[in-house]
Computed example of a mutant assay.
Amino acid sequence: MEFVCLDIICVSHLLEEACVAGLSIDSPKPGHFQPPPPVAQWALEACKAKQRGIRYKITGCHTRNQNIVTNNLSRRDAEKHLNDARNLLGDLERIHDRIIELVDDDDVAATQNTQHLAYASTVDAASALVKNYLLQRQDDNSSVVPETEAQAAIRRALQAAEQRVREARAEVEAAEQAFMDLGGDFSALGETELGPPDSVSQAG
């Protein structure tokens, strides 16, 4: 839950910036979030902030699949994490294209291309890993087993916690969008407040 706490701190900073500007932002209500503008309309700092978060998630999906393979865990979970990584890579492609449109420095663009290819390679590696894992276990019996009452209670608690995380992240995204709409500058908040660190170094 460490990253959720960082996200909440980030929301506080965004709202403080709005107050300094003499404006108020109503807290978004569940189910009433305005859809964000298309990527083609994003500013460079917004693209980089979202890019960092997606890169972190892709790395997380691959790490979880490595753990599944190492410990001979659920094949269904491995396929889910792989599908998540592929979908995230699609989002990352669109953001990367937008960043390349916006940057006017060839060195920065080259670094962005190199880093993007690294994450695409990570997803390719995850795909090969899961494919091989499923092939090795194709003759195994299904890993689905009946739940005990205690296991069911834990699962429900985890689902509730995941929902709270999703709501917190949605609030962060809404606050970030409001901040950008007010002309806010993400770079003024400091890199460490905008998202978890990447395994690949950032540049530009």
Results as ranks from 00 to 15, higher is better:
K48P: 00
N65Q: 12
K48N: 10
K80N: 10
N87Q: 14
D84E: 11
S143K: 02
E79M: 13
R169S: 02
P38N: 07
E101K: 12
W42K: 06
E2S: 10
E16P: 00
P28S: 06
V172W: 12
A178V: 05
D7L: 09
G190M: 10
Q138I: 12
S12Y: 10
L194I: 05
P197E: 02
G195E: 01
E167L: 15
Y119E: 03
I99G: 05
D124C: 05
E93R: 14
K57A: 11
R166D: 15
Q163N: 05
L82T: 08
S127R: 09
D97L: 13
R76F: 03
S187W: 03
A168F: 03
I154S: 12
A168K: 04
A40M: 09
S199C: 03
P28I: 03
S127Y: 13
Y56W: 15
P37H: 11
Q138N: 12
N132Q: 12
G22N: 04
L134K: 13
A153E: 13
S143C: 09
G60I: 00
C10I: 00
I154P: 01
A110K: 09
R169V: 03
L82R: 14
P35Q: 07
N72K: 15
D106I: 12
F186T: 10
N71I: 01
Q159M: 08
G53L: 07
I58L: 10
A174L: 07
A178K: 02
R169F: 10
Y56M: 05
A174I: 06
A125L: 09
Q159V: 00
V11R: 08
E101H: 04
R86W: 02
V172C: 15
A18P: 00
M180Y: 13
D198M: 14
Q34F: 11
L194F: 04
V130M: 00
E16Y: 07
L15P: 00
C10N: 14
D185K: 07
E167Y: 03
I99C: 12
C19I: 08
S187P: 01
D181I: 05
A128W: 07
A161P: 02
V165K: 14
D104T: 14
L89A: 09
A188G: 03
H62T: 05
A78W: 04
P146I: 08
C10H: 11
Q41G: 02
I9A: 08
D181R: 10
